[in-house]
């Protein structure tokens, strides 16, 4: 991993103990993502895409191998250390939006900044929601928003802490094609504007083709040429 890398993954392996013995879902995957660049992880269902994303984002611990985010060895941090790292460096967008149902759009967006005790969370949340076209829906609850609107709130939340890298898990998986197009445009626009690297998991090869780098997985192994 060099200074240009924001994410460095080396020989990453993940296994689970099951009643039928040990199950390896990811085997010795290695790749780098450079700062401000975009990367897609593709592969059939069960190939280990989501597992890889979770490990890269510090949501889980690898069985073997290393993950470095902005030069920090994620695999050696404890859960609270990884949580701090996620809060400072990362942004997330999920297929099912994962908004907090009891919080308004504005409050959902504010959470990452409030967590680290930064001032001006409200002002920045309003600014971002206006940017994603939801300036008039600030105090609406998720249940009062459409799927596309919810994903736009999730995008605003993902960018509020000015992340260095954004992880997106099937960001358009729950949306119709028209809305998907708008969300993808917004995602890439925000990404470019803030210089954030993007790692996204998708089945959509058209979307994958829009990224700078494609990692293809099959049976837990990387099968694309290095």
């Amino acid at each position: 991993m060099n200074d240009e890398s924001i994410l460095g993954v080396n020989a990453l392996t993940k296994s689970y103990s099951t009643s039928g013995g040990e199950l390896t879902v990811l085997r010795e995957v290695t790749f780098d993502v450079r700062r401000g660049r975009t990367c897609a992880i593709v592969g059939p269902s069960g190939s280990g895409k989501t597992t890889l994303l979770g490990l890269c984002a510090g949501l889980d611990q690898p069985t073997q191998g290393t993950v470095h985010l902005d030069g920090i060895a994620v695999h050696s941090l404890n859960e609270d250390g990884r949580a701090r790292l996620r809060n400072k460096l990362l942004g997330f967008v999920f297929q099912n939006f994962q908004l907090l149902t009891t919080l308004t759009a504005r409050e959902n967006v504010m959470v990452p900044l409030e967590l680290c005790g930064e001032k001006g969370a409200d002002h920045r949340a309003v600014e971002l929601l206006q940017r994603v076209g939801l300036g008039d829906r600030l105090d609406h609850y998720p249940i009062q928003l459409s799927g596309g609107e919810q994903q736009r709130v999730a995008l605003a939340r993902a960018f509020i802490n000015r992340p260095k890298i954004l992880f997106a898990d099937e960001p358009t998986g729950n949306l119709d094609s028209e809305t998907s197009g708008k969300i993808i445009d917004l995602l890439f626009d925000l990404n470019r504007a803030s210089g954030t690297a993007l790692v996204l998991v998708t089945h959509n090869l058209e979307l994958a083709a829009m990224t700078d780098q494609i990692i293809t997985l099959r049976g837990g192994r990387r099968v694309d040429p290095l």
Partner: peptide
């Protein structure tokens, strides 16, 4: 699910 989201966004246990 809300707790998991908060943990994901960087809230400690």
């Amino acid at each position: 699910p809300s707790v998991a989201v908060l943990r994901c966004l960087g809230a400690s246990a």
